[in-house]
């Protein structure tokens, strides 16, 4: 049986959008897939050692379930993003959903390859020391070299 392959492009750096790439990558690896995730633009935030800046905003996010209806004018007040993030993290924990840090390290343990987009690293003047160990840096051609030969390829 040939090994199945999956490639994911992670472009978002918010709490809600951080979950799909890590959940799918870790699960695919558990199923025996060879997996690579290419982190570009805001997705790069997901490779930082410190994930405390990965937040969720109720603003312009009308589908987010809220405990009480909240007018947009209130959602834009200072501190609302931090509060929404705290509430979401609390909910995730209560429901037994893994933290991003946990899913990310499960991916790495399972040999999921993380690639940071070199162009975006340079664009935003990120320091390699801000990122976790064990990742690679590369560009579109490097990613496509793997993605072109995969069974599943997703853009998140």
């Amino acid at each position: 049986m040939t090994t199945k392959k999956m490639a994911i492009i992670a472009t978002k750096g918010t709490l809600d959008m951080a979950y799909p790439p890590f959940i799918l990558a870790s699960t695919a690896a558990a199923l025996g897939y060879e997996v690579q995730v290419f982190f570009t633009f805001y997705g790069l935030q997901l490779l930082r050692k410190d994930l405390s800046d990965v937040k969720i905003s109720p603003l312009a996010n009308p589908a987010m379930p809220m405990p009480v209806p909240m007018p947009v004018m209130v959602q834009m007040l200072p501190g609302m993003e931090t509060m929404a993030t705290m509430m979401m993290k609390d909910k995730l924990k209560k429901k037994g959903v893994a933290s991003l840090e946990e899913l990310r390290s499960l991916c790495q343990e399972a040999d999921v390859k993380f690639i940071a987009c070199q162009m975006t690293v340079d664009l935003f003047d990120f320091q390699k020391s801000d990122f976790i160990d064990g990742i690679e840096y590369g560009g579109a051609a490097m990613f496509l070299g793997f993605a072109g030969d995969t069974d599943i390829c997703l853009f998140v």
């Binding site: 959940i23 870790s26 699960t27 558990a30 893994a98």
Partner: peptide, 13 residues
């Protein structure tokens, strides 16, 4: 018990 997707699968593996 108490763990949500995909943790039961990952821990089984």
């Amino acid at each position: 018990s108490g763990l949500s997707c995909p943790l039961p699968i990952l821990k089984t593996k």
